[in-house]
């Protein structure tokens, strides 16, 4: 099979567009899609300090590499990285080493924020209580990412959410009937309080997970998908498998579904967004919340 552009050996056949790509042209095409997302959605401005949420996994290392390359040609943009160390022995240690090494190679300032330092317990310790699930990790990690990236002066927090992640979230919220959370999705969700909340952006939002993996591999990154030992058999996985089955039977289903959501979003956003006046500072930690005490502080008391 040959690249439709240059005739070299193909590394990817995209069924959804009916074209095959060689390594070089695939990389070019992959990067131009992410650049398009960035400019279409206005994800970055000049003079900004952009912090990449770097887990050390495949998607976030690929994102850091891509942005580092992109920002080389941008004046005044600064790139830093932030890794959350949840404290998962044997799993997180390895990916933190990958994060450290990559940042050293690229000469990017890396900050590490740990659960142990901020919550007094590692995730391993939190999970000793059988009732504690992925919710704890997710809520505490988001809280920490926001607080820490604000403290280090980031204007934007770039996360490596890909098309598959985004679609899974759309369908999960739909299936759970959580419209309020659903309208907060998008490449650049609206931010209520810029002082307190570092806006999150998703440059890979339109890139399929499988293509990010190929990009990472072609860029020389290690592709080892280690799995979090606490991973739950969740609704997310059911939705993920359903979407991949659909894509496999009916190529381009995922693209159509994402585009449909993006058309729908501006029309339903105002109708389902929360009451902005109810946003206030958490009584305990001063981060913003819609209630009296934020979710992270509520969970913190239970660990």
């Amino acid at each position: 099979m040959e690249c439709w552009k240059c005739g070299k050996k193909a590394v990817m056949h995209r069924k959804y567009e009916g074209k095959s790509w060689c390594g070089d042209h695939f990389v070019e095409q992959f990067e131009s899609l992410a650049k398009e997302t960035i400019s279409k959605e206005g994800l970055f401005q000049s003079n900004e300090k952009v912090c990449v949420a770097l887990s050390g996994g495949m998607d976030s290392t690929a994102l850091l590499l891509f942005l580092d390359n992109l920002f080389e040609n941008w004046r005044d943009a600064e790139l830093i990285a932030l890794t959350v160390d949840e404290g998962i022995e044997g799993y997180r240690d390895e990916s933190i080493e990958i994060a450290k090494e990559l940042c050293k190679d690229l000469d990017i300032e890396l900050h590490i924020a740990s659960f142990d330092d901020h919550f007094g317990k590692t995730l391993d310790e939190i999970m000793e209580d059988k009732d504690h699930g992925c919710t704890y990790c997710g809520v505490l990690r988001r809280w920490l990412l926001n607080k820490k990236s604000r403290e280090i002066g980031a204007d934007k927090l770039a996360t490596a959410h890909n098309m598959d992640d985004e679609l899974q979230s759309i369908f999960m919220n739909y299936l759970k009937g959580d419209m309020k959370r659903m309208v907060r999705l998008g490449a650049k969700p609206a931010v209520l309080d810029r002082e307190k909340f570092v806006p999150r952006v998703k440059p890979f939002r339109e890139s399929p997970e499988r293509e990010i993996a190929l990009y990472a591999k072609l860029k020389g990154l290690e592709l080892h998908q280690t799995e979090c030992p606490y991973v739950e058999d969740s609704l997310r996985f059911d939705v993920r498998d359903f979407l991949n089955d659909m894509e496999s039977k009916r190529p381009s289903t995922k693209f159509t579904a994402l585009r449909a959501f993006d058309k729908l979003l501006p029309k339903i956003k105002d109708g389902f967004s929360g009451d902005e006046t109810s946003v206030r500072e958490c009584k305990e930690c001063d981060e913003i919340t819609s209630g009296e005490v934020c979710k992270a502080c509520q969970l913190r008391k239970k660990i």
């Binding site: 099979m1 193909a10 590394v11 996994g57 495949m58 997970e209 499988r210 998908q225 799995e227």
Partner: peptide, 29 residues
Amino acid sequence: ITEKDGEIVSNKETVDGDECLHLINVVSG
């Protein structure tokens, strides 16, 4: 994504025999 004898190949590639395909998982979780 698939490697054939150590090289990444597209899904449309054909096999000619005595080959080893290495399937690398790319879905998270």
